[in-house]
Design a binder for these strands. Sequence first.
DNA 1: TAGTGGTCTAGACCACGGT
DNA 2: CCGTGGTCTAGACCACTAG
Lengths: 235, 235
Amino acid sequence: MKRTRYKEIETLLKVKIQHGVLKVGDYLPSENELCTNFSITRTTVRKALDNLLKEGYIEKKHGKGSLVKERRHSLGLLNVKGFSEAVGMNVNTIFLQEPAKREWSTTTSFRPSENELKANSLHFEQLRCVGDDPVMLENNWFADLELKNIIGQEFVEGSFFKTLSQKYLIEVTGSEQELRAEYADERTAGYLKIEPGTPILHISVKFHTNKSNLNIYSELYCNTMKYPIGNSYHL
Amino acid sequence: MKRTRYKEIETLLKVKIQHGVLKVGDYLPSENELCTNFSITRTTVRKALDNLLKEGYIEKKHGKGSLVKERRHSLGLLNVKGFSEAVGMNVNTIFLQEPAKREWSTTTSFRPSENELKANSLHFEQLRCVGDDPVMLENNWFADLELKNIIGQEFVEGSFFKTLSQKYLIEVTGSEQELRAEYADERTAGYLKIEPGTPILHISVKFHTNKSNLNIYSELYCNTMKYPIGNSYHL
DNA sequence: TAGTGGTCTAGACCACGGT
DNA sequence: CCGTGGTCTAGACCACTAG
């Protein structure tokens, strides 16, 4: 990757945001300040800010400044309505299996690469609830290559992806998904407190990250009766 | 909306692409040519091209030029694998109900605005097939406000959205979706050639367009057994 | 070597927000 | 009024592609 002036400023600001030096709602230094602080022109500063804007880190207000935005760490991914998106709702995450070395699943829709399969697999399983209602069973696998010491560590604000971003500076750069409507099996139905055979939404995801040897493979089983899955896209 | 030089160039090029004057694979005039042709500087030209790039109309090749890209008119929306995305597969669309004035549905997940409800509703229903397999039942509603003469008109390449883009210069700017796994009802099951009670994926979509009084409300019912719904997101 | 896009400078004027 | 971001000019040098 070529090093450029705007990329410097961009990552510098991004790191400050990720590490919480710049918090949500904080105003960034003005474009002119950045110009003088880093001895560059506004064109270059604006290129850096444009990229942060595109990636959803900041928001610009004409006549006021640029401020740090709540990062919709979704990026075209699916969110459970009243879950990641809802504010003030009573959301709980229960670990059914804490992160640990376990076998790669043979039933994921997306097959890990040979490199990944050669490495050990880390896995964890969570049950996502809205209040007392369990709505999603979530299984995650990833190769034990990049995330040193993640086992036993608390997740930042209970979120795996926030932990990746803040502790390891790893960002999700894309994803592939497959959606299916299926009958719930015994185990899944048990955790979701529904009758076996009820239709559930099965989502298989492969998350790509900025580390080429790190992908996260997720299998989600959702009870969409009470809480349908929602997502939105704009511009 | 403020008129700017870069917006001029941008829409001018966009219209040429949409009308097929510039075809997929064609190279745009070089940045320097555009500069002299329109008497503007490269900064402005590049701003225009950046926007086209962001919207997926073009692709840039360092050292060669900018060329028109196959537009994935998906934008974070869902595609049926082996459907919009598949090439060379035997895809058929059957009209169950041709576009015509019909009542607004009372069962769509997203409620049309009062303005839209006051206007007449246009509706059409399609059955999407891969080969002889019906895989998706699709219902669409929209207010009869912007699309003059769309009734009785053939769709461009059989696609409603291509028609919007090329005949009316209307672009989808965003969408909201809700996903549910449900039991197939009698009618849906009949068309999809499955047993009533089979799990199907129900997708409700509200498409936003660059015309503020035009939204498209879609209800999709998918048999995901043989062809799961796939989508991908990058960068 | 000529032409393309990628980066960057050093200015300018405008539109918006708040004092 | 001043400071902010939004638009735009007129250059420059570099890196990549291809004949």
